[in-house]
Amino acid sequence: MNKLVTARRSIICALAAAVAPFAAPTAHAQESRPQESRPLAAATVPVYPPIQGASVWDRFGETPPSSHHRVFSNWGYLNDWSVDIYQNPGATVVSPFGSKTSSGSPVTVQVVTVTPGCATGNLADGGWRIGLEARDDATGTVVGRADVMHVDQKPDSITVGATVGPWDRLGRTGRFRYSSCYQVNGDTGAHIHLEVINRTAYSCYVARSAGVGLSDETVVGHIGTSNSGPQQSC
């Protein structure tokens, strides 16, 4: 009897050993290497002056984007670069984002911030800050944002959630009272303070000399680029 039991146990052990490689524990069976997906080709979006018609880049040579102060943040990060673009009071302020990406897909621009631009909360000290977000319609990807500051005469239609086209009026350039937020003594000093940020990595500006004239079709920067840090030229 003992011999029979021993023989049966030997057979069972042999069968178990044969089956074991094909019956891994459930936890091991669920382990798998994460699937590697190929990222979509990066598409950039051009940034233009936020002023319709002629304007001037860094008129007095005191606000180059390589060193100009950055005031605002998006997604928890200080914006990538900033510059002052000048035009006398009364010029139309528009979105700085192009209507198509570098790959040709449409870009949708939405208003994400509408607030007095200065810390005092008083529009007389520096007008409106209007934040805009650019999305690549082909992929649904948010590419970047821009803050357009010192906007006067904002239309009632410019509210958070509104979609704006490249020529929709955000307001006008204005002359505000002299303050720590707006140190301007004359109409030639009236300007729009522009700040730009990428959703990921860093955006860039197009380097140029102070006082250079711009048109509303002059590219002044790009979002969607992969620069290594803030305040870098393209």
Rank of each mutant, 00 (worst) to 15 (best):
R33I: 13
H28N: 09
L214A: 06
G211C: 08
T26E: 12
V111L: 11
N198M: 01
R172Q: 11
R175G: 14
N79C: 06
T115H: 00
S73W: 01
C181W: 05
T108V: 06
Q52A: 15
A162L: 02
D147T: 01
A210M: 11
G165D: 10
G144L: 13
V5E: 03
R8H: 08
V94F: 04
T218P: 05
A146S: 14
L15H: 01
K100V: 13
P89H: 07
V220D: 05
G189K: 13
D125C: 00
Y77T: 10
Q52M: 15
D216M: 07
S179P: 09
V196N: 07
V196P: 02
G229Q: 02
R175K: 14
I12T: 09
M149L: 05
N79R: 08
Y202L: 01
V142A: 09
V151P: 07
H69M: 14
V107M: 15
V56Y: 03
A18M: 12
V93P: 05
A17V: 10
T141D: 14
S209D: 15
G213C: 00
V93K: 09
E195D: 02
R145H: 11
Y77D: 10
R33M: 14
S67R: 11
A23C: 05
I197F: 02
R59W: 06
I197S: 08
M149Y: 04
E36I: 11
K154G: 07
G127V: 02
D84F: 05
P64H: 06
M1E: 09
E195F: 05
V112P: 00
P106Y: 07
G104M: 02
Y86D: 08
G117S: 07
S226N: 14
H191I: 12
V151M: 07
V47Y: 03
W75Q: 09
L214T: 06
G144K: 12
G127D: 03
I51G: 12
F72A: 12
G221T: 06
G224T: 06
L214G: 08
V93I: 15
H69N: 09
V111C: 13
H69V: 15
Y178C: 01
G76W: 15
A16M: 13
